Simulated assay, not measured.
Amino acid sequence: MSEEFGIDLDQVFKVIDSADVLVVRFHLIDKRLFVDFRISQNSGPFIGVVARAESLEDRFRSIKRIRPDFPVPERVQHFPWPRSVPVLLNAGVWQRIVDRVSALGDDETTDACGRVMEELLLLERTEVVGAIRGADHYQTLWERQRA
């Protein structure tokens, strides 16, 4: 267990290193990080941000839609990320994912990693701002007084 990050990073790294298909659940963001490390002669690995699945069957259907050239995976490995997206970066978890995806893919795949991280950071920032400003799905502790 990493005292600094409050999560067992060794276990997280083992999941990243062994997964064929990986889903990372965030505590602030309703979307998920989806990584499919499987490759073929025609397709490299995939990394993207996807909607939360309503069920395991829903997740398998979404994987088939995203990766139609591949069979439905036997299993999908996942882990919850209880901290912020910047902590994912600082803990080395993101780099571990990027290194594995990049080793299996090409420059386009590596570029996709950058776009995915930008999207995750924006999603989290939007959610935090919404919480501060009292978006519909949040309750504020105080209301702004009208002048």
Rank of each mutant, 00 (worst) to 15 (best):
R61G: 01
S62N: 15
R83S: 12
G6K: 04
F26V: 01
L88R: 04
L33W: 05
G44F: 01
L28T: 12
L89D: 15
R38S: 08
T110M: 10
V24I: 07
A53I: 04
I66H: 02
M117N: 01
V93K: 01
D8T: 08
R38E: 07
D69L: 05
Q95L: 13
F37A: 00
P71K: 03
G105E: 02
L122V: 11
W94M: 06
D36W: 03
T126Q: 11
L89E: 15
V50T: 06
D36M: 03
K31W: 10
R144I: 13
V129S: 14
G130P: 03
V72M: 08
E118D: 13
L88E: 00
T126N: 08
S43L: 11
V21K: 01
V24F: 05
I16N: 02
F79I: 03
R100G: 02
M117Y: 11
I63N: 01
W94F: 06
E57F: 09
P82I: 09
G114A: 12
F34Q: 00
V24G: 00
I16V: 14
F79P: 02
F13C: 09
F46S: 02
R133P: 07
A103F: 13
F34E: 04
P45M: 05
G92T: 01
D69Q: 06
H27F: 10
Y138A: 13
V50W: 09
E3Y: 12
S55F: 15
S40D: 06
P45I: 04
L141Y: 15
V129C: 15
F79V: 01
R59F: 08
H78N: 12
R75V: 11
P86I: 05
L89F: 14
D106I: 10
V76I: 11
D20N: 07
E143K: 11
P80T: 09
V15A: 06
S62H: 11
R67N: 03
A131K: 11
T110N: 11
G92F: 00
V23H: 04
L122T: 09
W81G: 00
F37H: 03
P80V: 09
I63V: 10
E3T: 13
F34D: 03
E4I: 10
K64W: 14
R115H: 07
R83T: 12
P82V: 12
R144K: 13
E108S: 14
S18N: 14
R52D: 13
R59N: 07
L120V: 05
Q95P: 07
P82R: 08
Q41G: 08
L123E: 04
D107M: 08
V128D: 14
Q41L: 08
D58V: 13
P45C: 03
L89T: 15
P68I: 07
K14N: 15
D69V: 01
N90I: 10
R65C: 07
E127I: 06
